[in-house]
Write a protein that binds this DNA or RNA. Structure first.
Lengths: 194, 194
DNA sequence: CCCTGGACCTACAGCTTGTAGGCAAACGCC
DNA sequence: GGCGTTTGCCTACAAGCTGTAGGTCCAGGG
């Protein structure tokens, strides 16, 4: 793109850090300008507008999550890999709440086609291969898994689980186990569905 | 609790309608003031601030969702009830995208203790009773179910499922079936967990 | 008949996003 | 070295948002 993509990346990086430190809502052009030591207007040389900035962070974070998941499932398969994938995401969400919150934004088509997003889907697919599903079911199973993991973490972050944190850890284990059972018993006969 | 709680409720109601029409982000004090035909400052007589307004909408919506779910599971049990619960929430999210988006906000303690929230948990419990889980597992199973359903709808709304909508319907059915299998095979022996 | 409280108002301070136009240093090129 | 173009930052400003302060007007109760 530009002749100085370093700067664009640096700005997005700073925004991610800001989000982790002060919360997702703290990502504003003004705050970010204060952060990097320039006037708000100057940032518009590097970023189209606030929405584009957030999309940039979104893409960055997808890549980071993919990285973490890759490390979490390396050398594992089956239930082990499933746990690795889940745990990697949960750890990430816990350590980077601001970054994680950015993922809740609707993904733009561009973001959905980004390297990180594709890598993440591929990694999920590779975990699911351990369950020997019919090829046509892979996409459905991926969505199911993504829904459960993301949904759990969203509810956990939103503190919908009241204040009984000891139980949350157990709930998380149960969810992973439940996921495992559901995947292991996935229907193998692909009946037609209009 | 003022002498005219009608007005507070009416304002919150209007905000919910605004959200459905123009999107969650359109809930601003200014826009709402335009909507109900007063000056922005006047709204502060009825609502403490923007955050309180959103919390009010959150609470309202929880009640509405509970209502919809109650209707969806009435007279059903087991998998039928599960489908009723899921379908009710999915329909609600589809018909009221703005309202639904408000639920993504972290719930305040007050909201978590609201009548609608409690009702919703109770209804979920009642669906799970059909699966004859040990009492101590109910809370974990509820979280699992909530995570999957909410997670799926969140991903669907965020259009993470690309543009292949025909498949989405199938994915949804698979998810409900998977949920059913996971619940039906839930561990009955409550092994201790540190 | 007054006077108190509620709902609305205007005015304003302070913050935000985003645009326009200017200045100055650095870089490539002759 | 001289020269122009690019680049990164700046100031200035328009417009919109939140939230506070203080005033007006009306209805209902003592």
């Amino acid at each position: 793109m530009k002749r100085a993509p370093l700067h664009q990346a640096a700005v997005v990086q700073a925004a991610a850090e800001l989000a982790d430190r002060d919360g997702f809502e703290a990502i504003t052009v003004s705050a970010l300008a204060r952060e990097v030591g320039v006037r708000p207007a100057s940032l518009y040389s590097h970023v189209k507008d606030l929405a584009a900035l957030l999309d940039g962070v979104h893409e960055l974070v997808l890549g980071e999550v993919a990285e973490a998941v890759a490390a979490g499932i390396a050398g594992r398969s089956g239930y082990e890999a499933l746990v690795g994938l889940g745990e990697a995401q949960r750890d990430f969400a816990g350590q980077h709440p601001g970054r994680w919150a950015v993922l809740a934004r609707p993904a733009t088509p561009k973001t959905a086609r980004s390297a990180g997003a594709i890598r993440l889907v591929d990694l999920t697919f590779s975990v699911l291969r351990g369950y020997r599903l019919p090829e046509t079911e892979l996409v459905h199973a991926t969505r199911f898994m993504g829904a459960t993991v993301n949904g759990f973490l969203a509810l956990e972050r939103a503190s919908s689980f009241e204040h009984r944190d000891e139980q949350t850890r157990t709930s998380w284990h149960r969810a992973l186990e439940a996921l495992d059972r559901a995947l292991a018993s996935w229907p193998t006969t692909t009946e037609q569905e209009h």
